[in-house]
Amino acid sequence: MSPEGTGRVEAGVAAAGGAIARLLAAAEQVILGKPEALRLALACLLAGGHLLIEDQPGVGKTTLAHLLARLLGLGFQRVQFTSDLLPADLLGVSIFDRTTQHFHFQRGPIFTHVLLADEVNRATPRAQSALLEAMEERQVTIEGVTHPLPAPFFVIATQNPTDQAGTFPLPESQLDRFLMRISLGYPDRGAERALLRGEDRRALIARLPAMMDHAVLEALQQQVQNVHVADPLLAYVQDVLAYTRGSPRYATGLSPRAGLALLRAAKAWALTGGRNHVLPEDLQAVLGAVVVHRLRATDGSHGPALGAALREAVPIP
């Protein structure tokens, strides 16, 4: 690459970093005390992945999804998953139009940019797989007709802790479709106090201006692809994969897809930090969110502890 080319990329990266930083700063005014979760969610979106939020009800999952859609200037739909939800309720149905004597496809709520699939584990596996297929394929096929989903398409699924009654836990193979799984957790005391004192979050979001649009977002997603990953970091990713496959601490190791996901997430994370190259720290920052839901520890541990243990176990080459 010529020096000017490098300079242009770096200027672009700096601009992207600045825009992202401003966006995150605005988001932090709404979701208090969760800058890391916000940045992970944004990185997930920039990487073109889908996000699974596993948490107690009422900690701000819906607010987060709504907020991101708003700030990014994207369309937003929310679907409450219940045990009687049918795939058609999500994807849409073909209705016979008497005036034209033709079937007319009535689009379901999935045809949006940001879809909040609330309490995804309360729906039956049939409805779940309809969502997950659409997530993977980014299109919906009904009665032989393929309908592409809008781009960007970003699913934020929330899930109650699986030990709650009346749930259908997502199978591992489907969990793999989510680039990241995060949890928000309870806010700390100061943040909660501010939350209690402040006005309604929904009203706050409604007043926020959009800080980006489709075109900017797509350009950012394109930039993520171009973030540089040096050879030693590929080795690092491989070491992590090899470790999970060899260590008796895990029932199953990470798949090659998990490795790709890790790289993609790390690239997006680097870009949110205003860099066009990945550092070991970037990989570590996204490691827990990317791999924990794809791993099953033999000792039953899960969540952040599992991610931290893996991070410390693999030396940086």
Partner: peptide, 9 residues
């Protein structure tokens, strides 16, 4: 430096 500690950290 811990083996798993990134250079910036």
């Amino acid at each position: 430096r811990r083996p798993a500690e990134g250079p910036r950290d």
